[in-house]
Amino acid sequence: MAEVPMERTLKDVPVGASCVVKRLTGTGAVKRRIMDMGLTKGTRVTVRKVAPLGDPIELTVRGYELSIRKDEAARVEVEDA
């Protein structure tokens, strides 16, 4: 992960808001895992809540609840729904 992308990522999406996945950055196991769980290009995602200690976050994607860390959310570039 060479640089922090300047694009808007899933990490920046406020609780309650929805967005659409544009691209995933990074490589390897973490990226594949995020995609395997259904966060692929064009998927609509809603940010549900933030855990009591501020991390991770809870998403609704493809009709189920998914929890990912903010570090991982930062790899998901998004655009407005």
Partner: peptide
């Protein structure tokens, strides 16, 4: 290694 990805389903 990288921290294990914490990409986890919260089942019903």
């Amino acid at each position: 290694g990288e921290p294990a990805p914490f990409v986890m389903e919260l089942p019903d």
